[in-house]
Computed example of a mutant assay.
Amino acid sequence: MKGRVLIVAGSDSGGGAGIQADIKTVSAFGGFAMTAITAVTAQNTCGVTAIAYLSPGMVADQMRAVLEDIGADVIKLGMLGNAEIMEAVCDTLARYPSIRCVIDPVMVATSGARLMTEDGEAAFRRLYAHCFMLTPNLPELEVLSGHPLSTSQEMREAASEVMKSQDIAWILAKGGHLPGEDVIDILLSKRHERQFRDRKIDTLHTHGTGCTLASAIAVCLAQGEEVERAVERGRAYVRHAILQAPPFGKGSARPMNHMHQKEG
């Protein structure tokens, strides 16, 4: 077991995304997963029916309990929800400035349910000060940049703008929502750029892809991989998880197989 990852995110009762997907992913890579739960959701493959947020103090207490004892090599942030929780997380991260942080800006579930409040969107930007890597999908990048995006070039320009204006070391802009037969993701830093391209998979088993990819990258970084290799391994892992998905659920946002054997 190698690589300690503290995951700060919400619980998905359906097991396909959120804390459940994060723990499975880190474990599949042989890492040690720890958690600070921000919210409990009632959801399945058909959608989210209820959300209950934990108190900001409890979220911070979970983080401090883990970090002051076990420690972490990387912290991964997922669903934070509201402004109060984001402020508490931000204040806690400020006490541990040497730990790299991978942030998946969870705003909307695959099913379409809103997972970030409007006041949360404003408070979210405080977290940039602690962000090593940001992993927005196209709709999230549209919110963060303030621009409508419909091409890979527009996505690249928006990602570059956010990265430079907020002084983020790395950003992985995910283009799965772009039209076309291929998935195009763009990895950017101030001195580096790489485009990843794969053929799209025609499937309903895409629930939790964002959570899973960010956690896969986080655990690879925690295990000492360089950023580009961490992204390569994470993307390959998600692709195989989709291809080997179990036949579970009746809705349009069905789970992947996080415990498949080939992770790339």
Results as ranks from 00 to 15, higher is better:
K2R: 15
G3D: 09
R4D: 14
V5L: 13
L6E: 04
S13H: 00
G14D: 00
G15L: 14
G16H: 09
Q20N: 08
V26Y: 08
F29G: 03
F32H: 14
A36L: 02
I37T: 06
T38L: 03
A39P: 12
A39K: 02
A42E: 00
A42G: 06
T49L: 01
A50S: 08
I51A: 07
A52C: 11
Y53T: 11
Y53V: 06
L54D: 09
G57S: 10
V59C: 09
L67F: 12
G71R: 00
A72N: 07
D73H: 15
I75A: 05
G78S: 05
L80Q: 10
G81Y: 06
A83T: 05
I85M: 13
E87G: 04
C90Y: 15
C90E: 06
D91F: 03
T92K: 03
L93M: 15
L93F: 14
A94C: 10
R100C: 01
V102A: 00
I103A: 02
D104H: 02
V108E: 02
V108H: 09
V108F: 11
A109T: 06
S111T: 14
S111R: 10
L115D: 00
M116N: 05
A122L: 11
R126P: 08
H130T: 09
C131L: 05
F132P: 08
F132S: 08
P139R: 05
E140T: 11
E140W: 10
G146H: 01
H147N: 11
P148I: 11
T151L: 03
S152K: 14
Q153R: 14
K164E: 12
D167G: 01
I168T: 07
I168D: 01
I171H: 05
I171C: 10
L172N: 08
A173S: 13
G175Q: 00
G176D: 02
G180V: 10
D182L: 11
V183R: 13
I184G: 09
L188Q: 01
S189G: 14
S189V: 04
H192F: 14
H192D: 04
H192L: 08
E193W: 01
R194P: 07
F196T: 03
D202R: 04
L213N: 01
A214Y: 09
S215A: 14
I217G: 03
V219F: 05
C220H: 13
C220F: 04
L221A: 11
A222Y: 05
V231A: 00
R235I: 09
R239L: 07
A241G: 09
A245N: 11
P247L: 02
S252G: 08
S252E: 12
R254E: 10
N257R: 11
H260E: 12
K262G: 14
K262T: 15
